[in-house]
Every structure is written in structure tokens, then in C-alpha cells.
């Protein structure tokens, strides 16, 4: 199952970076029928169900670059995209569509809104621990983790500066964070 997740993430990277049509076809064949069965179970209306599939799959085609592997598995992100579309369609079918929009409630298609609520002294301790963990990573992963999380560079900026594909930056970041998480969990 974890292999499946990586495959989906790779497909999303290829779509985001290269507009790769083959990757999108593979993604579509894997995902669209499942969105359709999810839609049929919940929307009770065949044309609305197809609309949910259409809107979800279009978002995956146009917004694949907004998937951030450091925040979770690709399948979870894809589910969230479909869920947001469904929420809006359900409200529209009840004539309740207004300013309350799925993508605002669950802002997965925009910048993170995380609020850092650790006290400053806690942050200092956490930051020291993290520094140590970062030093244990392979150099190329450590470099990217530092740039993104300590210097606040965006993944795109890092890709530009290091002259790497964005997908490589994302996957190194993901691998690095995974290792750090495993080390911290031990």
C-alpha cells in the first residue's frame, strides 16, 4: 500500500512539472473510477456524480503542483480535493451555495495556515533537537530541510537555486522529514 502512495505522488510530480500526459492518464485510470463510486454512494444523482468526478479530476490536472509531499500521502490529498468538490456540490444541490466554500474550509489548495503555538522557550528546545536530527541526514537532504524549514525558502526557490527539478526537492524533503520523524519517534 505504501508503494501505491509513492506511485501516486510521483504521478502528481510529473503532472505538475512536465504536464506529463502519460502520468495523468495513469492517474486518471486509477483514481477517476474510484471517485465515481465515492460520488455515487453519496450524491444519489448520476449527473451530479459525474460532475464530481469531472471537477475533481480537472483540479488534479491543473493543481497538481499544490500537492506537498511533506504534509502527507498523495492519496489523502486526492481525497481532500474530492471531498471539497463534494461539499460544494451537496450545498449547491440544496441551493445553499454561497460564500462558504470547501476550499476555504479545508485550505488544501492554498498555502498552509498552520499556527505555531509553541511557547518561545519550547521552540528553542525543539529547534536544538531538530538541528541535531538534521545533522544526521545525508547532506543533500539536510541542505534542503535547512533551506525550507530554517531559512523559510519555498520549495520552488530551493529548486531554482540548486538547479534541481521541483519533484527532486520535494522527494528529498519528504525522505529527510521521514527519517527525522522515525528518529524522533524512537
Amino acid at each position: 500500500m505504501s508503494e501505491d502512495k509513492d506511485v501516486l505522488a510521483e504521478l502528481l510530480f510529473n503532472i505538475a512539472e512536465n504536464r506529463c500526459r502519460d502520468s495523468y492518464q495513469t492517474l486518471f485510470k486509477e483514481i477517476a473510477p474510484r471517485v465515481l463510486s465515492m460520488a455515487r454512494k453519496q450524491l444519489f444523482d448520476e449527473s451530479l456524480a459525474y460532475e464530481m468526478v469531472q471537477e475533481t479530476m480537472l483540479k488534479l490536472w491543473l493543481k497538481a503542483h499544490l500537492y506537498d509531499a511533506s504534509k502527507g500521502a498523495a492519496v489523502n490529498w486526492i481525497f481532500s480535493v474530492a471531498r471539497n468538490v463534494k461539499f460544494d456540490l451537496l450545498r449547491r444541490s440544496k441551493h445553499q451555495q454561497d460564500w462558504i466554500q470547501g476550499d476555504d474550509l479545508w485550505p488544501i489548495l492554498s498555502e498552509d495556515r498552520d499556527i505555531n503555538d509553541n511557547a518561545p522557550e519550547d521552540r528553542e528546545i525543539i529547534s536544538q533537537q531538530l538541528q541535531y536530527q538534521i545533522e544526521q541526514l545525508p547532506i543533500e537532504q539536510a541542505d534542503i530541510v535547512r533551506r525550507v524549514y530554517l531559512h523559510g525558502e519555498s520549495q520552488q526557490e530551493v529548486a531554482d537555486k540548486l538547479e534541481l527539478p521541483l519533484g527532486t526537492v520535494k522527494s528529498r524533503l519528504r525522505l529527510g522529514l521521514k527519517k527525522m520523524k522515525e528518529a524522533l519517534d524512537d
Binding site: 501505491d4 474510484r34 471517485v35 465515481l36 465515492m38 500521502a73 492519496v75 481532500s80 474530492a82
Partner: peptide, 15 residues
């Protein structure tokens, strides 16, 4: 979300 995602896209058979 992870539970639902797994149900919808990993466990469920596609239509």
C-alpha cells in the same frame, strides 16, 4: 481523512 482516503482509494474496488 486518512481513514476515508484509504477506504475510497485503496480498499474500495473501482466502478
Amino acid at each position: 481523512e486518512e481513514q476515508y482516503a484509504t477506504q475510497a482509494f485503496v480498499s474500495a474496488a473501482p466502478d
